[in-house]
Amino acid sequence: MTREEVIAGLAEILEEVAGVDPADVSEEKSFTEELDVDSLSMVEVVVAAEEKFGVKIPDDEVQNLRTVGDAADFVLKNL
C-alpha cells in the first residue's frame, strides 16, 4: 500500500466520521486544529483506521498522531 493510498483512506474515514471534505485532507493538516476533529471523533477515526488498514493503534500512540501525515507514517510502519 502506498502513502497516497493510506492518505486517501484516511480522507474517506475523516469524511464518514467527522464530515471533513476529503479535498481538505493533506499530510500536514492537524486533526484537531485544522480539520476540527474532536477527541470523541478521533477515537472513531482510530477504530476505523485499525479496521481499514489492519493495524493496531495503541492508546498511548494516539496522542502522537497530530497530523494526517503522522497517522499515515504510523499505518505504513505497522502494516
Rank of each mutant, 00 (worst) to 15 (best):
V25S: 05
E27I: 04
D59V: 13
E16R: 06
D60K: 05
S39K: 02
I57V: 12
I57N: 01
T67K: 01
A72I: 09
E27R: 07
D60G: 07
D70Y: 05
D70K: 02
L14G: 00
V46I: 12
G9E: 04
P58I: 00
R3K: 13
K77S: 15
E44P: 06
E16P: 09
I13A: 02
S39N: 03
S41N: 12
S39T: 06
V20A: 04
E61K: 10
E34T: 09
F31V: 03
L79P: 14
I13V: 15
V47H: 05
T32A: 15
V6E: 02
V62Y: 10
A72K: 01
I57E: 01
K77N: 11
G54I: 11
K52T: 06
M42I: 07
D24M: 12
L10A: 00
S41F: 10
M1K: 12
E51T: 11
V55L: 04
V55I: 11
A72C: 11
I7D: 05
D38I: 07
G19I: 08
V75Q: 02
T32N: 12
V75S: 04
V6A: 14
E5C: 09
N64M: 15
F74Y: 13
E16H: 12
V43I: 14
L40G: 04
A18D: 01
D21I: 05
L40E: 05
I7H: 02
K77G: 09
A23T: 12
V68H: 00
P58T: 00
V47S: 06
T67Y: 09
E15K: 07
V46H: 02
L35F: 07
F31L: 08
G54M: 06
V20D: 03
V6G: 06
Q63A: 15
G54F: 09
F53Y: 05
T32D: 15
V17D: 00
L14K: 02
